[in-house]
Design a protein around this nucleic acid. Structure first.
Length: 866
DNA sequence: GAGTTTGAAACT
DNA sequence: CAGTTTCAAACTC
């Protein structure tokens, strides 16, 4: 049994730290769950309803990402509907410490096609034995369930719900655990009357008429959402929230309260009753009989309630089997010291995770039932009293529970450990090759089907990340990679970046287990998540496994410095320069990159200018006036120009030199200004947002800490354009996004090159109104660099942005809640030389209106490259 | 399945 | 905020 379990206090350990809020605090999983939609299935145990989570615990961990696009509205909380039957689909359960949660629907349903045991379990001898012991009727088809009885039960349920009413058009009904179809007739499913709409979902398989709650009516839906939010900003928040009673008990209560008049709050008309929560003083109901006292009376005989029951069971199980403790799950360190244990306990994020499919849960349950039956049957033989027999039975059941958990935990962790170790080996290989150390493996049914490590530097391919390399390798080996990926688990040492994560979501990866989080570029949780990519089907995500090891590898890489890293972009500070220095010509790269002014009026010039200046000075100067000194840079010498004392010399000859010197200086400054003009203008525009240029966000710490302004919701619309000469198809993937100031958002454009030649595109952008551009910050954008598209290639181009919280404080923007972001893609042509305006052949004729055809034809214009 | 009851949402 | 209307779910037969 796992060590952590033994030491848990049931009442204190009801919380699972699975989320970090905007202030960096851990938030209880239940809190988070309610915040993001609440459970929509509940299991009743002794009158207490335990959330049975059909959705993933894959929740946005970092409030850095929390925008509210249309797609995300579809993820907005749903009203809980208590359903007492277990779901049909197999699910993955996760255990963290003493808490057990269902994580999410496992894609691909019954894992086993041939018998009662999932392939994962078949590989486990111990669990296999466990299952074989309960497989009592091997000849009866079990359809993937652990027992024939379970299969039969499920089958009957299906029949029951699929029963068609004779002579009538069958109305679509929901299976327990599934979303309920709506029956709206008049609201077009665009009002909160419609449950689908209220739950933030599209209507699917509903009985509604003239439904507009679907992708075809995206605009209408978007308007309706906005309208609902204007009316009530909490319209899409869950009605049933969490309140604490004392230190331990967690209760769900209706936030707004009901207003029932006739039902006595004892029918499902009452929202409180329907949600199985007592009415509170927030309710305005009349003749209410749904008070806490009423409910307590109903369940007065219960000794164990709710989550406490489960936790007590789990803890009892741990204490009954205290002698077998596997090493801490996925931990790399086999020597688990006491100190480590105590730390682990203090930091719930470091708890190991374990996984159970529905089949395993079912099997474990049946094992416990078998134990109970055995205990009862032995009652007579041992001549026990009723109480003694029950006590004995309880002990045996609990012990069996512990055994089951022990076997499951031991098995799943060692497998995961093995695959992750392989990923780290690949990462080490990358590190040895001077690549960013990231490695990954794709595992299907316990077998490695793909592997990869970062190969960016060698291939000069910025997309050659470990995951992409692995997928490309898989494409060579398998015909239908997408099909395989849907059944794959990815083990990777570092959180996949936005690109890889987005791709993996698109390809339908089933599960990801990764080491360190990638706070700046991580596309799984750090800066992106499934919702952001408009992915409705959650995938299972486990992070922070061997994070420290992953980080150490990255540190090792950056410590030895990346030989392929681009040139230093930071401005070089003047060091040890004489006060008398007027002008410094620095190295070429710096000049090329930063043609701008430094605080002391030091002019940094373009390389050719610098060379000219250097030559001129050589011609002019004597050793008294100019000297060359070795630069701090090893590659390019800089020239130090001494002015003090040397200039303003002695005699006519020196005066002439001075005059020439000043003339040259003015010329140099003028040329410098010319070179500096374009970047300076750009810097000016960026700083002032003149012309709608937006800001580029670089202070990631500030972004992580900024707080969103709840009472302002800004509509950001997206526009795209391509000139007629550019043959790309370029458009935004969403027309608009609603975002609060201080909240990050991710939008996508899509570009396709339908031609049969590669085209390099470069985009320009513009934001209107200009005043808003000052507050519009791009964290990452495809416009930052050129994009190349091969023939027929299509890519999604991300824009990751946020609106500065100060937007809400700007009086000029008080009534401005609409922003339009426009992009235009131009074709970038290397080697293209624009016609020189100084070439007499290119000068227009005097009368512009009467330019002769011959003159036009004779103009010397460089042909455009094909 | 048709009709009725109910209370939340929407509207005035 | 209160009263009325609209709406879809819950309920009854």
């Amino acid at each position: 049994m796992n060590g952590e379990l033994v030491e848990h206090e049931p009442d204190e350990e009801q919380m699972v730290y699975s989320h970090v809020d905007s202030e960096g605090n851990f938030v209880e999983a239940d809190d988070v769950y309610e915040e993001y939609g609440g459970a929509d299935e509940y299991i009743e145990i002794n009158g207490q309803f335990i959330a049975h989570r059909p959705q993933s615990m894959v929740l946005p961990r970092n409030n850095v990402m929390a925008s509210t696009s249309q797609a995300q509205y579809s993820q907005i909380p749903r009203q809980p509907r208590p359903i007492s039957l277990p779901p049909r689909e197999p699910h993955v359960f996760a255990m963290r410490g003493s808490n057990m949660f269902r994580l999410e629907r496992q894609q691909g349903t019954p894992a086993s096609q041939s018998g009662s045991v999932s392939p994962q379990l078949q590989q486990s001898s111990s669990t296999g034995e466990l299952l074989s012991s309960i497989k009592t009727e091997p000849d009866i088809p079990t359809n993937g369930y652990a027992s024939a009885a379970a299969a039969e039960f499920m089958s009957r349920r299906q029949e029951l719900y699929a029963k068609k009413a004779p002579g009538n058009k069958m109305k679509k009904r929901s299976l327990p655990g599934q979303r309920k179809p709506c029956n709206c007739t008049k609201s077009m499913c665009l009002k909160l009357y419609c449950d689908c709409f209220a739950n933030g979902e599209f209507c699917r398989d509903c009985n509604c008429k003239d439904c507009h709650n679907n992708i075809q009516y995206e605009d209408d839906r978007s308007r309706a959402i906005k309208q609902s939010l204007e009316r009530n900003p909490n319209a899409f928040k869950p009605k049933i929230g969490i309140a604490r009673s004392g230190n331990t008990d967690i209760e769900r209560l209706h936030q707004k309260g009901c207003h029932c008049k006739k039902s006595g709050c004892l029918k499902n008309y009452c929202e409180c009753y329907e949600a199985k929560v007592p009415c509170t003083d927030r309710c305005k109901c009349k003749g209410c009989q749904n008070t806490e006292m009423d409910r307590a009376g109903k369940y007065k005989d219960s000794t164990l309630r709710g989550a406490s029951a489960l936790l007590s069971l789990a803890n009892a199980a741990t204490t009954s089997i205290s002698d077998s403790r596997p090493s801490s799950g996925l931990s790399n360190n086999s020597e688990d010291t006491d100190e480590r244990d105590s730390n682990t306990e203090k930091n719930p994020r470091s708890f190991p995770w374990f996984y159970m499919t529905d089949e395993v849960v079912e099997a474990a349950t049946l094992c416990m039932v078998a134990q109970a039956e055995e205990a009862l049957s032995s009652k007579g033989a041992n001549r026990q009293t009723e109480a003694e027999a029950l006590e004995q039975m309880e002990k045996l059941v609990i012990r069996e529970f512990g055994h089951c958990l022990d076997q499951i935990i031991g098995t799943s962790s060692s497998k995961d450990r093995q695959h992750l170790e392989r990923a780290f080996t690949l990462a080490q290989e990358a590190l040895d090759c001077d690549e960013v150390p990231v490695g990954c493996v794709f595992v299907r049914n316990g077998e490695e089907v793909g592997y990869g490590r970062n190969d960016v530097n060698r291939t000069r391919d910025p997309t050659a990340h470990a995951e992409m390399v692995a997928i490309r390798r898989m494409e060579e080996n398998f015909e239908d990679v997408e099909l395989i990926l849907r059944e794959c688990v990815l083990y990777v040492t570092l959180e996949p970046c936005v690109m890889c994560a987005s791709g993996l979501y698109q390809l339908g990866i089933r599960k990801m287990i990764y080491g360190a989080e990638n706070a700046r570029f991580g596309g799984v949780r750090s800066v992106g998540n499934a919702e952001k990519y408009k992915m409705k089907d959650d995938i299972e995500i486990v992070s922070g496994i061997d994070a420290e090891r992953s980080i150490q590898m990255l540190k090792a890489f950056y410590d030895k410095q990346n030989p392929f890293a681009p040139p230093e972009k930071r401005k070089i500070k003047k060091k040890n320069l004489d006060d008398t220095v007027d002008c410094v010509v620095a190295d070429e790269k710096l000049i090329a990159k930063f043609c701008c002014f430094t605080p002391n009026s030091t002019v940094i010039l373009a390389p050719k200018t610098a060379q000219s200046l250097s030559n001129a000075l050589r011609r002019l100067s004597t050793t008294n006036y100019c000297s060359t000194t070795p630069s701090s840079s090893k590659t390019t010498p800089s020239i130090r120009w001494l002015s003090s004392g040397g200039i303003g010399g002695r005699g006519a000859k020196r005066k002439n030199r001075d005059a020439m010197f000043y003339v040259v200086s003015i010329g140099v400054v003028a040329i410098g200004l010319t070179f500096a003009a374009i970047p300076a203008y750009r810097i000016f525009c960026e700083q002032t947002s003149f012309g709608g240029l937006t800001q580029v966000a670089k202070d990631f710490e500030k972004i992580a800490q900024m707080k969103k302004v709840e009472d302002r919701l800004i509509r950001v619309q997206f526009n795209s354009d391509v000139p007629s000469s550019m043959r790309w198809e370029f458009k935004p993937l969403q027309h608009e996004i609603y975002v609060h100031p201080g909240e990050t958002a991710l939008a996508f454009y899509t570009a396709r090159n339908p031609t049969d030649r590669p085209i390099v595109g470069i985009s320009s952008y513009n934001l209107t109104p200009f005043q808003a551009a000052y507050y519009f910050n791009k964290i990452q954008c495809f416009c930052f660099e050129e994009q190349i598209l091969n023939p027929g290639e299509q890519v999604d181009l991300p824009v990751f942005f946020f609106i500065d919280p100060d937007y809400a404080n700007d009086p000029a923007l008080e009534y401005l809640d609409n922003i339009l972001l426009s992009y235009t893609f131009f074709e970038a042509k290397s080697g293209l030389q624009l016609p020189s305006p100084f070439d007499p052949n290119n000068r227009p004729a005097v009368d512009l209106g009467k330019v002769s055809k011959t003159v036009k034809e004779e103009r010397h214009v460089q042909p455009m490259p094909a």
